[in-house]
Design a protein around this nucleic acid. Sequence first.
DNA 1: ACGAATATGAGGAATGCACTCTTATTTGGC
DNA 2: GCCAAATAAGAGTGCATTCCTCATATTCGT
Lengths: 159, 159
Amino acid sequence: MQLTLTGEYAIRAMIHLASLPEGTIVQISQISEQWEIPDNFLRKITAQLSKAGLIFSHRGNAGGIQLARPAETLTLLDVIEAVEGKIYLNKCLIGPQFCSRTSWCAVHIVWCEAQQALKEILTRRSLAELAASTISKFEQYQSLPHGSSPLNSPSQSIS
Amino acid sequence: MQLTLTGEYAIRAMIHLASLPEGTIVQISQISEQWEIPDNFLRKITAQLSKAGLIFSHRGNAGGIQLARPAETLTLLDVIEAVEGKIYLNKCLIGPQFCSRTSWCAVHIVWCEAQQALKEILTRRSLAELAASTISKFEQYQSLPHGSSPLNSPSQSIS
DNA sequence: ACGAATATGAGGAATGCACTCTTATTTGGC
DNA sequence: GCCAAATAAGAGTGCATTCCTCATATTCGT
């Protein structure tokens, strides 16, 4: 009943991309450094994000990854489901083949409600909002002059 | 991000107990039969429920288990946390030692909201309510005469 | 052709899940 | 006291998943 590190890393990477001007291409190694993600592992994760259509990847010289859609149209749920598969808080929510009691079990209804609530919250704010809010709060936290983006300058350690 | 079978089985067993008159003692093997739970595994789970103080267990001849508190005061969250530990939708919710970004990360706030909502839903209805509702729905489903409890009569297969 | 980047697939160690099995220990009835 | 019926406790097993690493392509700009 917990987000895996895979999902957490995917979110970090996507927030990073969402904090940049639309269309910016970033190298994976750059993201892995700034967000403390094992480089090779992040490559696996970005491959999944790419396969799911959330990012474009460009190989070769000056390659990297970029968002495939505007950050305003992306949500945490998109990212999580891209790398972890669809969310099912309980097996009984997958389908009747996993629980024969769904038609008369009151607990099943509770799980329906819980899952709906969870998904609603994970889609309530776009990655664009989250990235913007994160940056502004980080600047407040660090008492930095406004306008310098902490997520893009490698000199600033995020820890 | 899913309830384990351990949690699912624990809920079934507790719903079973909650459907009986207060203070009733049931054998573990009886529950395991009616709810399709491996007998030995259920014994492990009931041991956890007992250690958590949710049920009393009695050994020896005519032994069994019974609710330690009225079913009206028990919730799904109690049961789940008894066998799975406290719910943390993301590691960052456990404490700052798992994520140094909590003070300025907007995603962290979303997880807080999600977890709160989930817990609220899992405590909204008592096991007494859930058991009662399940039984009445089951009777409707089976078109049985009112008053016969499906969860107590071993002759009826629940499948 | 070269070098800088991602893609891909084969692992691999560690952990957790879903159990089983065995050996106590307790209790009530004879 | 003894036996049968029940839980207690702990070890152990098989499997899947998580969280990675590494080696080897493949792609593209110059």
